[in-house]
Design a protein around this nucleic acid. Structure first.
Lengths: 178, 178
DNA sequence: GCCGATTCTGTACGCTTGTACATGTACGGG
DNA sequence: CCCGTACATGTACAAGCGTACAGAATCGGC
């Protein structure tokens, strides 16, 4: 038997599940896959999570916490920015660099579409970003910008070439003006 | 043995798969589920489609053909419209009324993100709409509007309340202007 | 040192899955 | 009428699945 470490174990399992969701999707998640990735026996995943839904929900919750932390960086960058649309476009382009992260967030959206209990997660994520942008723009415009950025996200994933940066900046400028 | 009808059978299977993708997602699709929905024996689905990937690809292709047909109606409406943003917003709001259809299109996006062979499908769909809007607006602005509408789609599905119509119209106006 | 509670883990069960395939049936050309 | 070919279908099989659980190991409180 290995050393006891309930919290560490739980965390390792959740992190492994997060990685795997990016790779195979929420629907492709299995106890065995997670256990292998986390380096724990199969029984451990069922001991800490009563069902697969529990496990995926925990992983997605963990993801939103990470994303929320990253949003603080966005807030800081936007606070000190002279050109909000350009800064926002740059942050988004940077974010899309990490395809795994982008896939994860998309998985959250899709999962939320089908599992109502996950909607608060998706909502919180978007609301947070909306709030950050609203500090530098009109609230309705901020909402529109977030919707647009979600579109940029799915567009970037489903196509080979992403929207180019100047166009992104121009669109955000239009949405955030007036 | 029932009467022979290869093409009809194939079509029934594809349609059943389409329905099911809306209900359980691409990843939730199984031969047996499709066979039951289509009212055909299990062997029929494996006879017409060599693998599940083949089957889901065919179903998604069928879906894009349907959507393409609907886009013709959008083109007609926009051609005769005095207020392009308002008309576009109305069409989109109407489209979102059918949650199953919206879920299907989202599934296509997500599937395309993970399966490169499906990307042409997603691309064609978006390009078509872009072309239609570009007839009444600047091409870059049309691209931006399509990206925005994709955002509206995922936003509507992942949340309980969709973006309201006036905001949608206002955002499209901004994106399509100048 | 002892003990109840918690953590750990290997194994087992019943079920569903994708796919293959042998056998049966309809049909169009000769 | 006959026969090769395409279509139809029930069944079988190995693999993977979620989950349950008995028993071993570890720990903190006393």
């Amino acid at each position: 038997m290995t050393k006891r470490d309930p919290e560490g174990r739980r965390r390792k399992i959740v992190e492994a599940a997060g990685q795997l969701i990016a790779e195979v999707g929420v629907a492709g998640l299995t106890h065995r896959l997670v256990a292998a990735r986390a380096g724990v026996p199969l029984g451990a995943t069922t001991y800490y999570f009563t069902s697969l839904d529990d496990l995926s929900a925990a992983a997605l919750r963990h993801l939103t916490e990470q994303t929320t932390a990253e949003l603080d960086a966005w807030a800081a960058a936007l606070d000190t920015s002279a050109d909000v649309p350009a800064t926002l476009a740059g942050l988004m382009a940077d974010y899309l660099t990490d395809r795994g992260q982008a896939l994860l967030d998309t998985e959250l959206y899709v999962a939320a579409a089908r599992r109502p209990e996950l909607r608060p997660l998706a909502k919180e994520w978007g609301d947070r970003l909306t709030g950050i942008i609203a500090a530098r723009a009109d609230p309705a415009a901020a909402r529109a910008a977030v919707v647009f950025l979600d579109g940029v996200l799915v567009h970037a994933l489903a196509r080979d070439e992403p929207l180019d940066l100047p166009e992104l900046t121009a669109s955000l400028s239009k949405l955030l003006s007036g």
